[in-house]
Simulated scan of single mutants.
Amino acid sequence: MSWAGFAVVFAAFFLTHSIPVHPPIRTRLTGIFGTRGFTLGYSALSLAMLAFLIRAAGQAPYVQLWPQMPWQRHAVHLGMLAVCLILALSVGRPNPFSFGGSRNDRFDPARPGLIRWSRHPILLALIIWAGMHLVANGDLAHVILFGLLGSFAMAGRLLIDRRKRRDLGEDRWQTLDAARREAAVLPIPLFRAEVAGRMVIGLGLFVGLLWAHPHLIGVPAL
Rank of each mutant, 00 (worst) to 15 (best):
Val195Ile: 05
Leu89Pro: 00
Met154Arg: 07
Phe97Lys: 08
Thr16Ile: 09
Val219Cys: 01
His213Glu: 11
Pro187Cys: 00
Leu145Cys: 10
Ile127His: 06
Gly156Pro: 08
Leu47Cys: 08
Ala57His: 05
Leu222Arg: 14
Ala183Phe: 06
Ala56Val: 03
Ala136Asp: 10
Ile19Thr: 10
Leu148Ser: 15
Ala11Gln: 02
Gly113Tyr: 06
Leu53Arg: 06
Ser98Trp: 02
Arg181Gln: 12
Pro70Val: 03
Leu222Ser: 12
Leu148Gln: 11
Phe191Cys: 11
Ile188Gly: 06
Gly92Gln: 03
Arg162Gly: 10
Val76Leu: 09
Gln59Thr: 13
Leu123Ser: 07
Pro94Phe: 09
Phe14Trp: 10
Ile127Leu: 13
Pro23Thr: 14
Ser18Leu: 15
Trp211Gln: 15
Val143Glu: 03
Leu15Trp: 01
Glu194Gly: 10
Ser46Gln: 01
Gly34Cys: 11
Ala7Lys: 05
Gln59Lys: 15
His133Ile: 09
Phe191Leu: 11
Pro121Met: 00
Gly37Glu: 04
Phe99Glu: 06
Ala56Leu: 02
Ser18Cys: 11
Phe152Glu: 09
Pro94Met: 04
Gly156Asn: 05
Pro67Ala: 02
Val9Asp: 00
Ala130Val: 10
Val21Pro: 12
Leu123Tyr: 14
Pro94Trp: 04
Gln68Glu: 07
Gly101Trp: 04
Ala60Trp: 07
Ile86Pro: 02
Leu114Asn: 07
Arg163Asp: 13
Asn95Tyr: 05
Gln174Asn: 14
Pro121Glu: 01
Thr35Tyr: 12
Thr30Gln: 14
Leu89Asp: 03
Arg55Val: 06
Gly138His: 00
Met69Leu: 14
Leu140Arg: 07
Ser98Met: 00
Ser151Leu: 15
Leu158Ala: 14
Ile115Leu: 08
Ile122Arg: 03
Leu222Gly: 12
Leu210Ala: 15
Ile86Leu: 03
Thr30Glu: 15
Ile201Phe: 11
Met69Thr: 02
Met69His: 11
Ile115Glu: 10
Gly34Ala: 13
Phe152Asn: 07
Asp171Arg: 13
Gly204Val: 02
Thr27Pro: 07
Thr30Cys: 12
Arg73Ser: 12
Ser102Tyr: 11
Pro214Asn: 13
Arg55Trp: 06
Ser46Trp: 00
Arg162Met: 10
Leu45Ser: 12
Ala11His: 00
Phe97Met: 05
Ala88Gly: 04
His22Val: 14
Ala56Asp: 02
Leu50Ala: 11
Gly218Ile: 03
Phe33Lys: 05
Ala11Glu: 00
Pro24Lys: 10
Phe6Thr: 06
Gly147Cys: 10
Phe52Thr: 15
Gly79Leu: 01
Ile144Thr: 13
His142Cys: 07
Phe52Gly: 09
Arg198Thr: 03
Asp139Asn: 13
Arg198Asn: 08
His213Pro: 12
Ile25Cys: 11
Ile201His: 09
Ser43His: 02
Leu123Pro: 03
Phe6Trp: 06
Leu158Trp: 14
Ala57Asn: 05
Gly169His: 02
